[in-house]
Structure formats: C-alpha cells, structure tokens
Design a protein around this nucleic acid. Structure first.
Ligand code: MN
Ligand code: MN
Ligand code: ZN
Ligand code: ZN
Lengths: 147, 147
DNA sequence: CCCCCAACTGAAACTGATTTTCAGTTATCA
DNA sequence: TGATAACTGAAAATCAGTTTCAGTTGGGGG
C-alpha cells in the first residue's frame, strides 16, 4: 500500500530551499497516497498515524506550502472549508468532485472562453476570472447507491 | 431614496406564516434597497440605522429566511464569507460579481449542459450540480480604474 | 563526524464567521 | 384585550484558520 511519493516531490521541496522534516514527511505521505480529496482534519488524522506529535498548525502550513509549489490543489468544498488533493500530472483546470467519497477528476472548461466573451459584450464587465466546480457521484459511489 | 419593498415581499413572508417584526423590516429594507451584494456585516451596519437594537444573530436568521423563501441570493465571496442580494425578477442562474463594488449581474450558463453531458460520458460520473461564478470589474469600476 | 543556527515545530491564544442556547419580548388572532 | 407561539438579543459555543513565541531540529560548513 505504501505508494512512492510522486516523482520529484522531495526534490522540488528541497530545491525550493525547504527542509524535509518528519512532520512534513508525514503530511506529504498522506497526500501522496490519497486518490480522493481530503479535508484538513482528515489529513491531520491520517498523518498522525505516521507521526503522532504532529500539530494541526503544521498541517495547515504544509498544505499551504504544497499548494504554493503547485504540488497540491486546494478546492473549496460545497459544505465550506477546503479539500486538498495532489495535482500530479494533470493540467490545472476545474474539478468534478464526488459528493460521497471526494474522488476528484479534472475537467477542461471547454466553451467557457466564448461564453465569457459573450458576457463581456452584453454586460460591459471586464471578466477577470471564474470559479467552476461540478458535483456528483463517481462510478463507484453511483453503483453503491443503486443497490 | 426610499425605494419600495419589491412587489410581494411582505405578502410572501406573511403567507409563509412568518411574523413581520421591526428587526425583520429593517433587514428587509436594506436588502430591498441595495443594488449590490452585501456582506452580513454590512447588512447589519445599514439595518442598525433603521433599528439600532438589531442584533447580528437576527441578521443571520433573517437572511436565511429570505434565502429559503427565494427572495435573496446567497453568493460565496472570493475572500470567504457570503454575499447577499435580492433575486428580484431575474431567473436563478449564475453570477458575475464586481471585485470592487460587489455589483452583481446574473448570467445564463449557456453551453454548460452540453459540456456536462460530455463530461459524464468521459468520466462515468453522474453530474448532479455545479457552481459557476465569474469575477471582474463592472463598467463603472472599470472606468474608475482607467483614470 | 559534529556543530551551529535559520528554518521549523507545537501549544496556546486569537480572529472572524456563524450557530446554539435561553430567558425575556412582541406580533397576531381569538 | 389577552394568550401564546413566534421571535428577539446577549452571551457563550463552535469551527476554520492564523498569529505568536519559546523550544527543537535538519543539514550545510568546519
Ligand atoms: Mn477555467
Ligand atoms: Mn447553471
Ligand atoms: Zn465517490
Ligand atoms: Zn463595480
């Protein structure tokens, strides 16, 4: 079950001048192994299995670090708070999140560019950015539901 | 400046079995008169001008009430927290929010339906809902910026 | 190999937004 | 004009996240 840290995470972190401490390694390991997006509390819970002294503050700090290095995505959750999941090799885009298990797939925002142009024409606004998030059920949770 | 309460607000509230109290009237009046989306704190500040004893808790409660009756939209703000603005006659849809003054225009999500179908095919997810929010500058704030 | 010290840590206190609790007030209707 | 269920504000609680600070430690230099 102990999947390797994604290629280059350790290198990325040290090259950026950060130290590779035990608390960080615990958080890194948890993020590296999860295929679904995790809440901060869940990251804390899991990482404590690897390093029991780990404080919640350090989880927040390490998640911020990983996000700033582009290794992890931060997604606003429907219910408030944030979810975290490794970016891995997928291009940054938008997310489709399973409401049950928090599995995440990235989706392109095909068509939004033209939509944006149209909206600028009609409204006179200068559109500077957008938020797009889709919610639903992943294939697995969908099956589960049908039983 | 004292614009009338939008057609039917009072009726809607009483028909739904709610009482029309002074604190509620203060909050209602503020929402009714604002053309831009307001934070809870701002609603509180303005409503106190009409009814100084008004507590913040009642602002929250009244906003929840108005949202549940469909009279007011609750929009997640980029910076955390929520913004509130009357739904008025516009159809429920998505929002384009001015980053400076919080003016809001509603936008249709043209093209998202087909996009959704495509995504369901590719990912196997059942898409149940989405969040789309655009951010930018309204014509006025845009001009202001240019000076 | 070990030492040094800036980077890093956890505890605790803090913040800002929102919710819960509860004892007192009030809008409405018989 | 009551009676009373709905409603209220104050205060305390909760929840996510941040700040502070005194103590700890990874890892490059000697
Ligand atoms: Mn996009
Ligand atoms: Mn839509
Ligand atoms: Zn799922
Ligand atoms: Zn504006």
């Amino acid at each position: 079950m102990a999947k390797r840290l994604p290629e280059g995470w350790l290198r990325r972190i040290q090259l950026a001048g950060y130290r590779l401490t035990r608390p960080r390694q615990a958080v890194l390991g948890v993020l590296a192994e999860s295929e679904v997006a995790l809440t901060v509390a869940e990251v804390h819970r899991r990482a404590r299995a690897r390093y029991p002294r780990l404080g919640l503050v350090t989880v927040y700090r390490t998640l911020d670090l990983l996000v700033s290095l582009g290794l992890v995505h931060r997604l606003p959750a429907e219910t408030g708070g944030q979810l975290y999941i490794r970016t891995d090799l997928q291009p940054p885009s938008h997310h489709l999140i399973c409401r049950v298990c928090h599995r995440v797939v990235e989706i392109p925002c095909t068509g939004l560019e033209e939509m944006t142009h149209e909206i600028e024409q009609v409204t006179g606004f200068a559109v500077q950015g957008h938020w797009l998030e889709l919610f639903g059920l992943c294939p697995t949770c969908r099956e589960e539901r049908e039983k």
